[in-house]
Design a binder for these strands. Structure first.
Lengths: 240, 240
DNA sequence: ACCTGAACACCGTTCAAGT
DNA sequence: ACCTGAACACCGTTCAAGT
């Protein structure tokens, strides 16, 4: 019957009760990010969010329209962090080297997302015409234009980059995870059905016996893919 | 009080009641696909699924472990369609032209997904080590290997392609949607905040006054991106 | 073996009532 | 103006009971 955590002894609540800080949209959104960071995105419910703020769930609706608005607002917060990170990054002027400028921006965004690994999932889950996201892509187009792209090719570039422009790539299939699993015995069992994949993974293990870095480093794969795409775009820009 | 649709007059139910076809995993999954196609993914609930089959919700649990298993199974069904489509597609042997072979396979997969537009969302929503997905990517590696890729570069290629290997690319930001919106007036209002993007979209409209095809054709953008990536992979293959 | 009804523990959200 | 308690209309799922 009793809630698992008594709200009275919740640290956040105790701090908030001293001066009785009034709720605000900003406070709600920051609490939402805190919950997602600590407990995962699934734990971010309106009731849980209210509890985090030492308040009843229904009080939230005075500051945000609904849960959709919370998620939209959470994206704003994350993109705020991305903008900060981008500004704090030293990068060449796009007029001189658009590739290096764009690369630096994208990797800066990626670092923020690595601190909020749930964020890509919420970015993906909505069409997202939020001003913050639009603003980010506006900056990307700005770099491309400064680098000599036509509007046409810049538009195309946005489509090619997709989510990678924001620093992440969802992968439906995770070959690295498969390699970790039940290495030797399961792999033999799978060899019949998936000969090429099993061969590939066996080769990967062979190439990198200590396993922790190198071949299966996501950061490495991300940069490889990004560079391949930037290469292709530069080739098309120069060829136009 | 009364349910919106009386299950008694539901067509599917009426048909099912004649010989009283027993429930089966296969029937459950096909009904799930039907619901998602007709009413959208959000309408796919256990209760709604049971109703579609003229049965109580709890009966489903004799044939699928839980909702997660339904979604997993739905992916299997979709990938089954993809395998059919791939086999029905004429394509050169990968030994002769890996690019054309892979391109044909990917575009065949894409056509299936265009018939089930909700499917990418469920593919994205889980890590998906399902045998069907693994099998698909095994085929991709097979093509690459036949085309002369090292295991190393094939692995890299899977990361670069990501979901595009299965025929779709999620786009966080949809510039075409923005252009459609409140064209002229909203665009002027946005010009201050997003000068590059607004310029790009204005240019797009200018280039393609009748609007319906060409510049904003998703299929065109998809193929452009795919070819750019295949180009890059071929260049790295040849250079190795 | 297969299906069911009632119930449980959750959701997001509305509404009328409190201060 | 801001917050609350109770309630509504949903979820997925469990369990004991029916045939």
């Amino acid at each position: 019957m009793a809630p698992r955590i008594d709200p009275r002894i919740d640290a956040e609540t105790a701090a908030a009760e001293q001066p009785r800080i009034p709720l605000s949209r900003r406070r709600v959104l920051r609490a939402a990010v805190t919950i997602a960071d600590r407990d995962g995105l699934d734990s971010l419910t309106m009731r849980r969010l209210a509890q985090e703020l030492g308040v009843e769930a229904m009080s939230l609706y005075h500051h945000v329209a609904n849960k959709e608005a919370v998620l939209e607002g959470v994206i704003e917060v994350i993109l705020g962090e991305i903008f900060e990170a981008v500004e704090a990054t030293a990068a060449p002027a796009p007029e001189e080297d658009w590739r290096a400028a764009l690369r630096a921006r994208i990797l800066a965004a990626r670092e923020v997302l690595l601190r909020h690994r749930w964020a890509p999932r919420v970015l993906e889950s909505r069409p997202s015409m939020s001003p913050a996201v639009i603003g980010y892509y506006d900056g990307v187009v700005g770099i491309l234009r400064a680098g000599g792209f036509s509007f046409d090719l810049a538009h195309r570039a946005l489509h090619v980059l997709g989510s990678r422009a924001l620093g992440f790539a969802q992968e439906l299939f995770d070959p690295d995870g498969a390699a970790d699993a039940d290495s030797s015995e399961m792999m033999e069992q799978m060899a019949d059905r998936f000969p090429h994949l099993v061969g590939m993974l066996a080769d990967a293990v062979h190439n990198d016996p200590d396993g922790t870095l190198g071949f299966c480093d996501d950061q490495f794969e991300f940069e490889f893919a990004l560079d391949l795409i930037l290469d292709g775009l530069e080739r098309r820009r120069a060829g136009a």
